[in-house]
């Protein structure tokens, strides 16, 4: 090897790393676009979307409700003891509702969905990849993206706003439990403040976030599972690594995306 190239090695490596990352991002973008377009390809995969909606949406309702009620209760407690210092405990309803509708509802719903459905998606596709089931689909001339990923994406786009709405409503009820029933704020004031302070833009913003999070969760988790064979580990360990990294990356991306969207929507 020519020794004069030694000083260049760190830069070469950095360049190679950057190119590899960019290439992977490009593949990820194509993965998302192709999966999205295939939701609308004829014949529409309605049955599979409904199946996935049941799995992603319906089966997540109980965990979303549980998370939401405690989140609302904590917001009610914290909010009350902060606001009471300024004699403004009357605006507790508005504080709880705006926190939930604008931020906590979409973000926590997304995080819960990553744990419940995203990890399952990554593991399912990972196992299908290592057991050659995805290859089998290709040999049968069945598009694996259309068959496996598009229904999940379609289902998440339907389920996420609905789950977020459920989270918001149950969270507001949680705030009511602590604020009104436990700490004695007037029930009428609690709801009147919510009505007067929450605007349609807040609700729309929350739903926009939930739609973007749905895309992030499904594409990241499916992409990691779908490409399990390209990782450094093989077999069952490969599946566990891709599932873990899918959950971590999706969670971080949800928070990053939340910041970007909040900046744009405010």
């Amino acid at each position: 090897m020519n020794t004069s190239s030694y000083p260049m090695m760190p830069f070469t490596r950095l360049g190679q790393f950057a190119i590899a990352r960019l290439r992977r991002m490009g593949r990820y973008a194509l993965f998302f676009l192709q999966s999205f377009v295939r939701i609308f390809s004829w014949p529409l995969p309605v049955a599979r979307i409904l199946q996935q909606t049941y799995f992603i949406g319906m089966k997540s309702v109980s965990i979303i409700c549980l998370t939401a009620v405690f989140t609302g209760m904590v917001l009610g407690l914290q909010g009350y003891y902060t606001l009471v210092k300024f004699g403004s405990e009357g605006v507790l309803g508005a504080a709880v509702a705006l926190s939930l509708i604008r931020e906590m509802g979409p973000v926590l719903t997304a995080i819960m969905l990553i744990g419940r459905a995203g990890s399952a998606m990554a593991a399912e596709l990972g196992i299908m990849r290592i057991s050659e089931q995805i290859d089998a689909l290709e040999t049968m001339d069945i598009d694996p993206l259309r068959f496996l990923v598009s229904p999940k994406l379609g289902a998440a786009l339907i389920s996420m706003p609905l789950l977020t709405a459920i989270f918001d409503v149950v969270g507001i009820i949680g705030g009511y439990l602590t604020g009104v029933l436990l700490l004695g704020i007037n029930s009428g004031i609690y709801f009147a403040r919510i009505q007067s302070s929450v605007e349609m833009a807040d609700v729309t913003g929350g739903f926009v976030k939930s739609l973007v999070f749905a895309v992030v969760i499904v594409t990241v988790c499916c992409f990691k599972g779908f490409n399990t064979h390209e990782g450094s580990e093989y077999g069952a360990k490969g599946v566990s690594v891709s599932t873990t990294s899918a959950v971590v990356i999706a969670s971080v991306l949800v928070l990053v995306t939340d910041y970007i969207l909040t900046s744009l929507l405010l």
Binding site: M128, T139, D141
Partner: peptide, 27 residues
């Protein structure tokens, strides 16, 4: 073409009938 895999590559979450029917169903 058709392909028979070394480890069968059957779909675990589908029944035997669904596995066999899948290629013609999807067409």
């Amino acid at each position: 073409f058709s392909y028979m895999f070394q480890d069968s590559a059957l779909f675990d979450s589908m029944t035997v009938f669904e596995n066999i029917a899948l290629p013609i169903q999807e067409r």
